[in-house]
Nucleic acid binder design. Sequence first.
DNA 1: GCAGCATCATATGCACACGAACGATATCGG
DNA 2: CCGATATCGTTCGTGTGCATATGATGCTGC
Lengths: 161, 161
Amino acid sequence: MAIQRNEQRMNVKPEIKVEPAAMPDGYVLEDQVGHLIRRAHQRHTALFIAMIGDEQVTTTQYAALVKLYQMGELSQNHLGRLTAMDPATIQGVIRRLTLRKLISHRPDKNDKRRRCLSLTGAGRDLVGRLLSNGPKVSKATLDPLTAAEQQQFVALLKRLT
Amino acid sequence: MAIQRNEQRMNVKPEIKVEPAAMPDGYVLEDQVGHLIRRAHQRHTALFIAMIGDEQVTTTQYAALVKLYQMGELSQNHLGRLTAMDPATIQGVIRRLTLRKLISHRPDKNDKRRRCLSLTGAGRDLVGRLLSNGPKVSKATLDPLTAAEQQQFVALLKRLT
DNA sequence: GCAGCATCATATGCACACGAACGATATCGG
DNA sequence: CCGATATCGTTCGTGTGCATATGATGCTGC
């Protein structure tokens, strides 16, 4: 995932300008909050992949692993709620982590529908190694802002949920 | 896409608490800026789908349509750069919009590699209808914040790119 | 009890998102 | 002019994200 792939191009042909059809003015796509959030998400994901310390662990997989590390044992859907993933999404994440033998599961004896998920030894080891990199990713993501602005930004972001 | 699907559950079984393995304390997933950005992105996408005024147009498709509407005619990769999509991603977006006959293309006479993309009449009509909903989506996304906070938030977000 | 409803996990289909690799074309340096 | 390099668009593979549907199980109220 290349960060700022679109910058610093020397060799791009000049684009042909045609009639702009109709400028509804005022509406600038780049100023829309949704577009900015999407780009911030892209940038964070790129930083995460580059810095987290494992070639394959993604942002959502990391969230699931950390929650299991801290909470011990959880059902699949409950883990999904704690990490903001719907049942279909968490299912795929858990399947891939189970394939990597980072997570194991056993049936719940009180509720036959549930799978009790927990980390394997390898899973605990991995989380132990990656956990210190988490704050570094957050730091890098917020790096363009001053310390005061970082606090402000995170506080505002929390209110948007 | 249900907004806040995980709230207000009355019927969830109490989860079984097991040993939390090891609390590395201080590290709270929900406070990490990446997790918050991801959730903000989810929320915005849900609001967009609900409010934009077309059942099938997605955030990225909307961005591509608006750019073409304002710029007239663009090559595929150039449009991708303007909307922050890599070549593989913009290719799929354009393919789906072409299938819906909202976009047409012709070969560039100066550069045989390029496809010159532009809106069809139906595409221009659709953008015309949706364009006024764009600001409403932004407004709804920022609604939890005061006017001053909204300005602050967008300004900070722009610095993170 | 038991009928209706909720929840659990699964499966399918669609849409982003990106890395990697590819062939075709364009451009630049010597 | 020609070789190195870059860009254009495509394809494949993997992973997220959600709507929708389904079958199994659990719970609540009558």
